[in-house]
Design a protein around this nucleic acid. Structure first.
Lengths: 232, 232
DNA sequence: CGTCCATTTGAGGTGGATCAACCCTAGTGG
DNA sequence: CCACTAGGGTTGATCCACCTCAAATGGACG
């Protein structure tokens, strides 16, 4: 509650100075933001900074411009389940109901664009294209969640790590190499494992020549075929 | 593929005889089906019968009238993750994209209402209320999936079973008692456990007086407070 | 009344968690 | 420019929650 207030104040302060009325309209966010009455604003979060908390009112919808974000839920004793990582281009924080169902934090320094939820609601009330787009984005998140339930409920540790590597390879590999923004603990909390188990699985894949390291978070996949096989 | 064809033929055969053009409009399905051009049909599936397969074209959207349905994904070696149980009143099979992401089977003899996906798409293209309703329903499924990821990734066996009991109590308890339509294996595949672990957890709760049995699938919760506590 | 399958219960095994060093590297300050 | 430090990562040893395998029990239905 307090955090939300602080965040909102910070955003408004920044908005005061510079509103960005016209943004490039080539991605999923743009497809909405291009419509009448929708104003997108830019904002930055530093490493480890909270963007919104679980069950906070969902005032804004966000798109990662650069950086990376984790969405997660906590149990009362601190156990954490990360539901998704949001990377450059991804939209997050979109809700049909009044509140955010997961908390969100910047993993590293992150720039986002954001629009007011209310203006999306308004646009969707007029424009069926916008309404359809909102539905499609939520359905995309649902698809990911369904795949992830299968992983969390039924895959082995090695299968989970293999799935994770292939997902990250697809989403953030540049020139065959990926620079992971998140630490081993984040990966563990995403995969329902401990950080030690993640580390051991990666070491084993390294020993088998399936991947190469240049620094713990710089990974090259050397054999996607074998990784797909390990994925089940 | 073959199954889908057979199902469709069966549906059409039945539709030939009796179309139900006007249905009571008091629930979430009705809110849509009440609109112009939407025709709801009734159909029945027998215990264990497949309704649609994973990755089949999503031709229909369904609502359980009576009975119970399981939605699930399979790994190549047969491991199964049930993503949701659909009980009387629940809508299932709604997709924004072209195909079903999970398979669906009747757990027991089940009656459903169904409407063609295409007519929903058409109505949503005209009527913003319908479009909004579709989004809200998908968002509801996403919320459930997010909660379930936390369960699958981070809860202990006892916590999972406690969560399950409270969910089923909320959804299908009549006069303080619930009649579970699904077997222990289904519960296990929903909770990411084996059927033996589910059975042991239930026995333990019984021994502690937290629940009572009258037949393995007839359960009375005697202490919801303690169950909530076990849930974490 | 018998059969069949779901469920329970028992005994033992194991994958991943936990606990504990140790190592590596990036950042810091002298 | 380098020594120091702190946090992230790796690796090892042990533990245990849950799985696996097996057998007994029970309830529904012909």
């Amino acid at each position: 509650m307090l955090t939300q207030t602080l965040n909102t104040q910070a955003i408004n302060t920044q908005i005061g100075g510079k509103i960005a009325p016209a943004l490039p309209v080539t991605d999923q966010f743009g497809a909405i933001a291009g419509h009448v009455g929708i104003v997108a604003t830019e904002f930055s979060y530093r490493k480890e900074e909270e963007i919104y908390g679980e069950d906070e009112p969902a005032e804004y919808v966000y798109q990662v411009v650069s950086g990376a974000v984790r969405s997660y839920k906590l149990l009362s004793d601190g156990r954490r389940q990360i539901g998704a990582f949001h990377l450059a281009g991804d939209v997050f924080g979109l809700e049909s109901g009044p509140t955010h169902r997961l908390a969100a934090e910047a993993i590293i320094d992150t720039n986002v664009r954001l629009v007011k939820r209310a203006s999306l609601e308004k646009a969707a009330g007029t424009d069926v294209q916008v309404a359809r787009k909102l539905w499609t984005m939520t359905a995309g998140e649902l698809r990911h969640a369904e795949d992830h339930m299968l992983l969390l409920g039924r895959k082995t540790a090695m299968e989970r790590v293999a799935t994770f590597l292939l997902e990250m390879d697809r989403r953030l590999a540049v020139a065959g190499m990926m620079a992971l923004p998140m630490c081993r603990r984040d990966i563990g909390d995403y995969l329902g494992l401990t950080l030690e188990t993640v580390s051991r699985a990666l070491s084993q894949l390294h020993a088998q020549g399936i991947l190469g390291f240049s620094g713990a978070r710089q990974i090259v996949l050397r054999n996607r075929q074998r990784l797909h096989h390990l994925d089940a």
